[in-house]
Amino acid sequence: MDEKIKDTVFGVVLFALGSYVAAESVLMIGRAANPPLRIRQLSVSPGLFPLVLGLLLVLFSVLLIAGSLKGNEKPLSVFADRLKTSFSAMRAAFGNNDFLSMLIGVVMMFVYCFFVVGNIPFWGGAVGFLVAMMVFLRFAGPAGCSARAANLGVIVLTALVSASLVVFLFEKIFKTVLP
């Protein structure tokens, strides 16, 4: 996507975030005014700094959007156009191989972080993850990478050796505990 379109969309997202933060901060200021804190003065309320930050975000996001729309004849219609383009671009992305590979990779990392770690003993989980990841990258992933260093045997070996090195380094030398 074009740089300016990205900026516009990003600006919109930030605007939403900033507004949310500002609103939540106002609520916080209200909550802090009640017992047990009974903070009535705005300047010492815990909600002050988040409120300032939220408002700054809103301001900066508007500046960002304005900057990205600068120089155009009819800014509002350009703005609406860009939002539409970005939606269609997002849908198109799923057809893009690169994007799909990245998505699958991220999902694999997600599974590892949320389900494997902590539930499956570290060494086993690590080897499994590494092999799966490397196999995916070699076979199912992007084309055009050199096949020389990535056959299955090398993959398994690398996974085993690196997982073992990590366990050795952290558990025996640094004396820490792995999940």
Binding site: D98, S101, M102, I104, G105, L137, G141, P142, C145
Partner: peptide
């Protein structure tokens, strides 16, 4: 994640 892209 850059490693997942082709052509890298």
């Amino acid at each position: 994640v850059k490693a997942f892209k082709s052509g890298s």
